[in-house]
Design a protein around this nucleic acid. Structure first.
Lengths: 262, 262
DNA sequence: GAGTGGTCTAGACCACGGG
DNA sequence: CCGTGGTCTAGACCACTCA
């Protein structure tokens, strides 16, 4: 009725968000549990439904709750999965510590599945740069969406210079049992070095649809460029991981005789 | 007036968001440029101000625009900075490729600054686990907020087992010119191996305030655990990086005689 | 059918910064 | 002062799912 009289130090919708956030943090609202309905919160806080919704939006965009219409809002569950770029070169997790940390929280899901499709395209600028291609050079891209428990888990697009891989299995949209690295080696381009770039950002619209993302879900973008012993870039992979579902792991040792820095 | 008659396939506020998002993607709205005002958009789309605001919120939460009250909305600028955990052990970027990629986009800011404060605390669970501590063991934590161009850039909290470092410089809240690694070495705990864990998520409220984050800004959390040659964990660092401002870089080579996997 | 959230309207008052 | 976005209200109709 009265359109707001004085200035509270903190807006009502923020107070509501703070209150629910605290309940979630302390476990008063457990993962998977239902949040009170908009109507109930409106009564509790003496606010209109729009104001309550504004507060709930804050939490949705923080990734703390999800709306599951028309059942209500629920506290989000968090399941982590570990991702080790170095696994390509190692049979097993390198150290006992990493092994323990990984098994501790890893989602033991049902059979993973994936969808592959292969295209021959003009590379995006970033890819052309990483593969040191000239304008007009083409690339083969193998696009995969990986699923775990029938939920999309990550997007994995791998780009190869067309010139290097034409005629090989890499241009066929079938799984390569012995591994793409092996095929590259057989073609005479063994990958012996890699650079990894990792970035966190909000997803683009097409990533939202491919990964079926809701609001408040950032992604980690992992780019990997592989080189031969002659320092020729032969492969560039763009991995889009759903944030808060993945932890990326690296292990490294101090180079011999390296100097000290901080 | 009429409270909505038919069902459009896509809500008006989404259409508005799509339209502006496309303009931003194609450069029709350049970084730093002002977005039309709420009023102007309301007239353009024949919608109420609340609907327009809902559409703008979508873009704010995607990190594409920022509201700068009361001047208006502006397209966000993106500046990237590279972060190399391996720099600790190397004087210079390892390879010419990495060197070129880094200089390409690196923000050349004014003098960086930082604020340090040191506490002796009971470690959080995750830290205690990583440092293989027993219940009751204490840690020294050196908390730093690093600034670049007077903007907070990252949070860097480093934890040391109290038992190992008591009495050393590490418990004083002053910068250590020769580097914390050097101090650890002098104490007999040279770090020769490290594990890195990287995760993307939305920031917690205290990170929002320490990093002065707006909506739609995810963070990359980088955790590093350092080990001595006896595999004793001696240091755990939690680095909170503002997403979309940082790229984390690693470089690695294939171990000798390693088998092939994909 | 009842109840949930999803979308939308037409208004209102406020704080703030620049002319 | 004026115009901006920030907050808030009291309604409305819709689509969906579950009992």
């Amino acid at each position: 009725m009265s359109p707001r009289i004085a200035q509270s130090p903190r807006p009502v919708y923020q107070q509501l968000a703070d209150s629910l956030r605290a309940k979630i943090a302390t476990g008063g609202l457990a993962p998977g549990e239902q949040v009170p309905t908009e109507k109930a919160l409106a009564e509790e806080f003496g606010a209109s439904r729009a104001t309550v919704r504004q507060g709930l939006m804050v939490l949705v965009n923080e990734g703390l709750i999800v709306a599951s219409r028309p059942r209500g809002y629920f506290v989000r569950r968090h399941e982590l999965c570990y991702f080790r770029p170095q696994a390509e070169w190692e049979q097993h997790p390198a150290s006992p510590e990493m092994d323990r940390w990984m098994t501790e929280q890893t989602t033991l899901g049902r059979a993973p599945s994936q969808r592959i499709n292969v295209e021959i395209i003009q590379p995006p600028d970033r890819v052309a740069d990483r593969l040191a291609l000239s304008p007009g050079d083409l690339v083969v891209v193998r696009r995969r969406v990986r699923y775990l428990n029938d939920e999309p888990f990550n997007i994995n697009d791998t780009f190869y210079p067309f010139e290097l891989v034409q005629g090989s299995e890499l241009v066929n949209p079938a799984d390569i049992a012995r591994g793409a690295s092996q095929v590259l080696t057989e073609l005479g381009y063994e990958q012996v070095r890699a650079i990894d770039e990792i970035e966190a950002r909000m997803p683009l619209p097409d990533e939202v649809s491919r990964l079926e993302l809701g609001a408040g879900m950032p992604v980690a973008v992992h780019r990997n460029t592989g080189f031969t012993k002659d320092n020729r870039p032969v492969r560039h992979t763009v991995n889009v991981l759903v944030g808060s579902k993945h932890v990326i792991l690296f292990e490294r040792t101090k180079p011999q005789g390296a100097p000290e820095n901080e």
